[in-house]
């Protein structure tokens, strides 16, 4: 199986994540799309770790996971706070800063 197979999969998943961010209005789903993008990147990392016989890629993935966990904790806390204030998680309603 060529490694570019995994890289292509990673690329497609990454673009799908971007589309999720661009298309969905639900802030939680946008957040999930971010996770999907992380995952795509992770897949690329692991693939390269395999290709170059280096553990670094995997360790990096591990760090990404830890940071993603932290990010999700804060992010979801923000969602809850936003929901308390706005009564919605529609990201398009958070436009108080529009010019």
């Amino acid at each position: 199986m060529p490694t570019s197979f995994f890289l292509a999969l990673s690329a497609i998943m990454f673009v799908l994540g971007i589309l999720g961010v661009l298309l969905r209005r639900n802030a939680l789903v946008i957040f999930m799309s971010l996770e999907l993008m992380f995952n795509a990147a992770n897949l690329a990392f692991v693939t390269f770790a395999n290709q170059y016989q280096l553990l670094t890629g995997q360790i990096f993935v591990f760090f990404i996971m830890a940071v993603a966990a932290a990010e999700v904790a804060v992010g979801l806390a923000l969602m809850v706070a936003i929901f308390r204030n706005k009564g919605s998680v529609d990201i398009d309603q958070l436009n108080s800063l529009k010019g």
């Binding site: 961010v21 990201i91 398009d92 529009k98």
Partner: peptide, 9 residues
């Protein structure tokens, strides 16, 4: 300013 329409997306 018009570019800053408040929509994150």
């Amino acid at each position: 300013r018009k570019l800053q329409n408040g929509f994150v997306r």
